[in-house]
């Protein structure tokens, strides 16, 4: 009960969340390996969405290049592991630091020069693409040939070296996503969260209330980038191979942001709801289209579904869903 109060939930919402958690905890025992692998994709999407949500949903700065931080986290930890045998947990911290630095630098450059709105969004794409091409030529991490983590056939999972089964990654990601949920909630409830939202709603008014907008925007970007990079490390050790053209892909940046948008930008549960919906949708489409064997059909339905959502629930599914289920989220 204390935990539910800490999250600011009504009893009913707390019960729903508890039920959801219990199901998520038991799920790997109940379903087959394919479903587990899909759930891992869901949790990656949820976690990346939660990380991005801090920058764009809370602080209101539209970043379209978050694959950059996935890639920095993934490559930093993987390269340190491959070349020096450094444990991924330390590599993860290094990756987070690199990403936070890159994020702050990009944000500082942009905001110092008053690049905002659409221009900022396009600038984030430019940095991500630029980095992708650099990594294409970065021999130390394999360039276009890719960087591979040695796959050991272990008898049991080894969380210390992050070598293990999808189930292990499932639980790691579940914990991570929960942690991100608690962190997001606690941030929103503090001065920094209020300030971010004020900046999102009206920068000039925020300034007039004594908020150092520049500093708070950079803080949002640094945190969001570091969290994203953490997920990047897990992704690297889950996939075991890294290619610049997939890790830093523009398509990944876009995937990262679709889930929170259709779930409900700036809400706590939106990224999670969006991740389930989107991944589920994608998997269904893939399975359906293998029956019909028409290339493009999957993407077509996917596009149509996005269109339907933006037409019917432009502010996202979670606000609507939570009202329908009587689980009012107290705060946006």
């Amino acid at each position: 009960m204390r935990a539910s109060r800490a999250l600011g939930l009504s009893p009913r919402a707390a019960a729903a969340l508890g039920l959801f958690l219990a199901v998520m905890l038991l799920l790997p025992f109940l379903v087959n390996a394919y479903i587990v692998s899909v759930l891992v994709v869901v949790l990656f999407a949820a976690y990346f969405g939660q990380s991005w949500n801090i920058m764009t949903g809370f602080a209101g700065q539209l970043s379209l290049g978050h694959a950059l931080y996935v890639g920095l986290g993934a490559y930093t930890s993987a390269a340190l592991f491959v070349h020096f045998g450094l444990t991924p947990w330390l590599g993860m911290i290094a990756g987070m630091a690199v990403a936070a630095l890159a994020g702050s630098a990009i944000a500082a450059l942009s905001f110092r020069f008053r690049v905002g709105g659409v221009y900022f969004a396009l600038l984030t794409i430019a940095f991500a693409e630029f980095t992708r091409i650099l990594f294409d030529h970065f021999g130390w991490v394999g360039a276009t040939e890719g960087l591979f983590l040695p796959v050991a056939n272990l008898a049991h999972d080894d969380p210390v070296r992050l070598r293990g089964s999808p189930v292990m990654f499932y639980y790691l990601l579940l914990v991570l996503s929960l942690a991100a949920l608690v962190l997001s909630h606690s941030l929103l409830d503090r001065r920094v969260g209020y300030y971010w939202q004020a900046i999102r709603e009206d920068e000039e008014a925020a300034r007039a209330l004594g908020i150092d907008v520049f500093r708070y925007k950079i803080a949002a970007m640094a945190l969001s980038a570091a969290m994203t990079a953490l997920g990047g490390t897990l992704l690297a050790f889950y996939d075991n191979n890294l290619y610049p053209d997939t890790v830093f892909a523009m398509g990944r940046s876009i995937e990262i942001i679709i889930a929170p948008i259709i779930g409900g930008l700036g809400t706590l549960f939106g990224p999670i709801v969006g991740a389930f919906l989107l991944t589920g949708l994608g998997e269904t489409m893939t399975n359906l289209s293998t029956y019909f064997e028409i290339s493009g059909l999957k993407q077509w339905f996917y596009g149509a579904a996005l269109l339907a959502i933006v037409a019917l629930q432009p502010s996202g599914l979670w606000p609507w869903l939570s009202r329908a289920l009587g689980l009012w989220e107290r705060r946006r």
Partner: peptide, 12 residues
Amino acid sequence: RTFQLVKPFGAL
């Protein structure tokens, strides 16, 4: 200061 053209944080 207040703004003549009001600037509320609409979603809050």
